[in-house]
Measured scan of single mutants.
Amino acid sequence: MQIFVKTLTGKTITSEVEPSDTIENVKAKIQDKEGIPPDQQRLIFAGKQLEDGRTLSDYNIQKESTLHLVLR
């Protein structure tokens, strides 16, 4: 499924993921596309910071959901 990751600069990254993918996994995909190390990434969805060990389905993230990427 496709999800969108919006950066603070307003850029939107499209990523191909599975509901069973972990947040860590998603951060790795963002690193592949943007070159941002996962340890600098914080992903936010519905006002919550997403934890690395959890999966997209844990957070009820569905296709075409938009996550927000904040850098630390």
Score class of each variant (00 low, 15 high):
residue 37 P to R: 09
residue 20 S to E: 10
residue 18 E to D: 12
residue 13 I to T: 03
residue 53 G to Y: 11
residue 11 K to I: 10
residue 11 K to A: 09
residue 2 Q to L: 14
residue 47 G to I: 01
residue 67 L to E: 00
residue 49 Q to F: 15
residue 3 I to A: 01
residue 4 F to Y: 13
residue 55 T to G: 02
residue 71 L to C: 08
residue 34 E to K: 05
residue 43 L to G: 00
residue 69 L to C: 02
residue 36 I to Q: 03
residue 5 V to C: 03
residue 37 P to L: 06
residue 10 G to S: 03
residue 1 M to Y: 14
residue 70 V to T: 08
residue 35 G to A: 05
residue 72 R to M: 14
residue 32 D to W: 10
residue 67 L to R: 00
residue 66 T to V: 14
residue 57 S to T: 09
residue 59 Y to D: 01
residue 17 V to H: 13
residue 59 Y to I: 02
residue 14 T to A: 09
residue 5 V to H: 01
residue 2 Q to H: 11
residue 35 G to Q: 05
residue 26 V to Y: 00
residue 72 R to E: 12
residue 71 L to K: 06
residue 59 Y to C: 01
residue 64 E to Y: 14
residue 33 K to V: 12
residue 68 H to N: 08
residue 45 F to N: 02
residue 5 V to S: 01
residue 68 H to Y: 15
residue 52 D to M: 05
residue 56 L to P: 00
residue 24 E to F: 14
residue 67 L to C: 15
residue 50 L to A: 00
residue 9 T to Q: 12
residue 45 F to E: 01
residue 21 D to T: 11
residue 6 K to S: 06
residue 16 E to G: 05
residue 23 I to A: 02
residue 41 Q to H: 06
residue 70 V to F: 12
residue 29 K to I: 12
residue 26 V to M: 05
residue 22 T to N: 04
residue 43 L to R: 00
residue 42 R to N: 12
residue 4 F to E: 03
residue 12 T to L: 13
residue 8 L to F: 13
residue 64 E to H: 14
residue 40 Q to M: 12
residue 3 I to R: 00
residue 39 D to R: 11
residue 26 V to T: 02
residue 32 D to T: 11
residue 10 G to W: 03
residue 28 A to K: 15
residue 50 L to K: 00
residue 43 L to P: 01
residue 56 L to M: 05
residue 65 S to P: 02
residue 34 E to G: 07
residue 11 K to V: 09
residue 40 Q to P: 02
residue 17 V to C: 08
residue 47 G to K: 04
residue 34 E to M: 15
residue 69 L to M: 08
residue 68 H to T: 13
residue 7 T to Q: 07
residue 16 E to M: 13
residue 35 G to D: 05
residue 51 E to N: 07
residue 48 K to V: 14
residue 10 G to H: 05
residue 71 L to I: 13
residue 18 E to N: 13
residue 6 K to M: 10
residue 44 I to Q: 05
residue 7 T to C: 14
residue 53 G to C: 08
residue 61 I to F: 02
residue 58 D to Q: 07
residue 61 I to D: 01
residue 17 V to K: 00
residue 49 Q to R: 09
residue 34 E to H: 11
residue 29 K to H: 07
residue 4 F to W: 06
residue 54 R to H: 11
residue 33 K to S: 14
residue 46 A to G: 12
residue 59 Y to N: 02
residue 6 K to I: 14
residue 53 G to I: 07
residue 32 D to M: 13
residue 44 I to T: 08
residue 40 Q to Y: 09
residue 17 V to P: 01
residue 51 E to R: 09
residue 62 Q to P: 09
residue 13 I to M: 07
residue 25 N to L: 12
residue 4 F to H: 10
residue 40 Q to L: 11
residue 60 N to C: 07
residue 35 G to K: 06
residue 52 D to P: 06
residue 66 T to I: 13
residue 34 E to L: 15
residue 10 G to A: 04
residue 24 E to T: 08
residue 42 R to V: 15
residue 35 G to L: 05
residue 21 D to Y: 08
residue 41 Q to V: 12
residue 34 E to R: 05
residue 7 T to S: 07
residue 62 Q to M: 11
residue 17 V to I: 05
residue 71 L to T: 09
residue 63 K to G: 13
residue 46 A to F: 10
residue 40 Q to C: 12
residue 23 I to R: 00
residue 26 V to C: 01
residue 24 E to K: 13
residue 44 I to N: 05
residue 49 Q to Y: 14
residue 61 I to C: 00
residue 38 P to A: 15
residue 9 T to V: 08
residue 22 T to S: 07
